[in-house]
Design a protein around this nucleic acid. Structure first.
Lengths: 152, 152
DNA sequence: TCTCTTATTGCGACTAGTTCGCAACAATAC
DNA sequence: GTATTGTTGCGAACTAGTCGCAATAAGAGA
């Protein structure tokens, strides 16, 4: 289920740089923080809290959330709500929007630019600045909703 | 089935028709169902579970959810997840998408047609059929995220 | 290196939103 | 009316996430 082909761009924050950021922010580099940071850094794409909890059984779930929100406040990761399920976290620098199938849960990443025209219209005509990335778009994938207009 | 995409509320289901549908579906018209159906029919737009619970204190919340999902399965209402908060329910036939401010929770309704270009692209290029309406788009309204840059 | 301060953790309780099991109830068919 | 069985109310459970607090352990300074 690992996400494919999210190559690291040069503008992306490196692991050591991330550690520095945490230190500059005045925080301590604890065992939990270091191992979660490593995991998030190495993960190719989005990771859910469940997955992190499974991979770090020594880290309490309350701590998990606290660490994640700390990382987020320092600008190392961001999170996206994937429909009904748990949120997904990933290293910053990705400029894509998740489109999740509401039936099978499959997530397809779409370049954020695809939403630009809509975002512009929403801002200009409705005064709403679209939060690209914070919530996934829900859809149905081909497997779950084969085309050719057969309504349920 | 009556689902041609550009049609609007001319084909909206009336209250008595809705009652018929429930009967045809083999269900009983209970007190809870009748009063909730009336409420939803009369409500101008989206109603949250909280609001319904407040207005129908005699109806247990578990029943509330069951009735709502029954109505939905019969095709009388649909629901939309408004970001972090509770879901909103409304009479079918509305062709709009909710855009919710993630800070203040304000909901702005946007004609579904605004999403058409995006939906088309997602279908054609990514094989995902956007579920317009099931999830709100999240954004920030002008009050919560005043535009600092000087854009036209 | 040891000591001290205090940021962070683990634990358990708690929240919101929603679902489930089950016995009591009430809508309808007869 | 009575019987049948779909629905309801109640409470418990569940998921995703948050919070308070005492114990722990980073890491600055001696």
């Amino acid at each position: 289920m690992t996400k494919t082909s999210s190559e690291r761009s040069s503008s992306e924050i490196g692991f050591d740089e991330a550690l520095d950021r945490l230190r500059v922010a005045g925080g301590r580099i604890t065992r939990a923080r270091r191992s979660l940071l490593e995991d998030l850094y190495r993960a190719a794409g989005r990771v859910t809290v469940d997955e992190l909890a499974e991979r770090h059984p020594d880290v309490d779930s309350a701590t998990l959330y606290r660490v994640l929100s700390h990382f987020e406040s320092v600008g190392l990761i961001d999170h996206v709500h994937l429909g009904h399920g748990p949120a997904g976290y990933r290293w910053v620098g990705h400029r894509s929007v998740a489109v999740v199938c509401e039936d099978c849960g499959r997530v397809v990443d779409v370049p954020a630019d695809e939403l630009r025209p809509l975002a512009d219209r929403l801002r200009r005509h409705y005064g709403m600045r679209l939060s690209i990335g914070h919530f996934a778009l829900t859809a149905r994938c081909e497997a779950c909703a084969p085309d050719h207009s057969h309504e349920r």
